[in-house]
Amino acid sequence: LHPPPLSPVTKIVSHLLVVEPEKIYAMPDPTMPDGDIKALTTLCDLADRELVVIIGWAKHIPGFSSLSLADQMSLLQSAWMEILVLSIVFRSLACEEELVYAEDYVVDEEHARLSGLLDLHVAILPLVRRYKKLSVEKEEFVTLKAIALANSDSMHIEDVEAVQRLQDSLHEALQDLEGGHNTEDPRRTGKLLMTLPLLRQTAAKAVQHFYSIKVQGKVPMHKLFLEMLEAK
């Protein structure tokens, strides 16, 4: 007798919306000359600070902190770049062919070309186009981000069933979200989940990109970023 509310957001999704990290700033060093080294130093520093935030965020995903410390580490070591990339992609949805690495670091193709970021730019844009086409909403984005973490296919999981339970609860949250407010497309949950292979491909390219920069040794990298890069 009571019609369901128009946009019922599940308890998990509303929690994920609350714990969504604040905006982050790249703050490029004004004393450095413009060019590849400056751009990459800015991005590596940004990524290092974002990693600290991502680790804090992960602990707030319902069920994540109940996993063993080793399994928490394994999931983050597998999925951190997917989470970073997904965040950039979501920030970039309102832009035309630009990537919003941070509020104060928006890169278009020309800037990317001039600062050695073109490979990364070209790798991430197809994912932005894919999510634009789907008109992905914030509720869906925060849930997908948590799913990317839980579904990271780490080879080193100790308690596979516990990780499966985490995946199931997040999957259910996404299904409830779609069942609630998107009845015109019964396949939307599937469509959103089907974006995850491209996210993984894109993140793998980004890891490769930063790993070769690390090997070249020209760009300073903070310890956490290096540690996560080496874990891949």
Partner: peptide, 20 residues
Amino acid sequence: KEKHKILHRLLQNSTSPVDL
């Protein structure tokens, strides 16, 4: 774990939302 000590330490820290 020794190789991943920063991640380990950050995960062990309190779950306080201040990290966010």
